[in-house]
């Protein structure tokens, strides 16, 4: 455990140096939020109006949170790192080392993500407050619950991205898998809450990983209740367990294949 903590720490430290670069990169985040603000302000002719049960400010806070999760994760780069490791055979150097590759990547990327999460959350909250003038009604306990949910969401995402990257064991270019995943998250889990989709596909989205990695924490933030939290917690923990197990097995199987091929 201690060594993973060290990896986590050193990633945070090395990222501090790029704080400025990252921060400027978050202009992109601010722009997305700005666009959605304008879009929803146009669509809500009256700010007190409810669309599919959401007020305008809830709608925008929802997007702020999903975008925080997405932008902190920086998944495309991470996915490329994994599949490059597999493709170039770099992964085989790691096999002999006294740590597990999946755990290594998890702690390493969690380090990067935590740092980005902190920055982009500050940015997101400030932007939201400037644009909307108030925060959603949520207690301190609620905030802690949302943060737990965000952490779980990030862990699941990282496992999923590692898993998608490991497809490189089997096909030359694994990026389309990640690409497809990112499109699904963006369209079904970032822009709109579940209630905006046709009723037939709502349950599908609700029980898909998209809910666990993106929708759940955001929804919790704009409309908190302890029962929703407990429900969410169960779903997320289940997903975490399943994803972690599958990715570990998948990795072991991939490594075996690598050994057969002589690395």
């Amino acid at each position: 455990m201690k060594k993973y903590l060290y990896i986590f720490k050193s990633e945070i430290m090395s990222n501090l140096q790029y704080a400025f670069d990252i921060f400027v990169g978050f202009i992109g985040y601010a722009v997305h939020i700005f666009i959605f603000l304008n879009l929803w302000e146009y669509i809500y002719s009256d700010p007190n109006e409810l669309i599919n049960g959401y007020s305008m400010s809830q709608m925008i806070w929802y997007v702020i949170v999903t975008e925080i999760l997405w932008s902190a994760l920086n998944g495309r780069k991470f996915n490329r790192r994994i599949s490059e490791d597999v493709r170039t055979g770099n992964i085989s150097y790691n096999i002999n080392k006294p740590y597990n590759y999946v755990e290594y990547m998890l702690s390493s990327h969690l380090g990067i993500t935590s740092f980005r999460f902190l920055l982009v959350t500050i940015l997101g909250m400030v932007l939201g407050y400037i644009f909307l003038g108030s925060f959603p009604e949520i207690s301190l306990l609620g905030i802690i619950c949302v943060l737990i949910s965000c952490l779980l969401a990030t862990l699941i995402s990282i496992f999923l991205i590692i898993g998608l990257g490991l497809f490189a064991f089997y096909i030359e270019d694994a990026t389309p898998f990640y690409w497809l995943y990112s499109k699904m998250i963006l369209l079904l889990g970032t822009i709109f809450p579940v209630e905006f989709f046709p009723t037939i596909i709502q349950p599908i989205i609700k029980y898909s990983p998209i809910f666990a990695v993106s929708i759940a924490p955001a929804k919790l933030f704009v409309d908190f209740s302890i029962t929703t939290f407990l429900e969410t917690l169960v779903i997320q923990l289940l997903y975490l367990l399943v994803c972690a197990t599958i990715v570990h097995l998948f990795y072991k199987k991939g490594v075996k294949k690598l050994n057969v091929n002589g690395g």
Binding site: H32, I35, N38, L39
Partner: peptide
């Protein structure tokens, strides 16, 4: 990013 949203939503 901006170019795929209608001009009218911005002010």
């Amino acid at each position: 990013n901006f170019s795929v949203y209608p001009e009218g939503i911005f002010t």
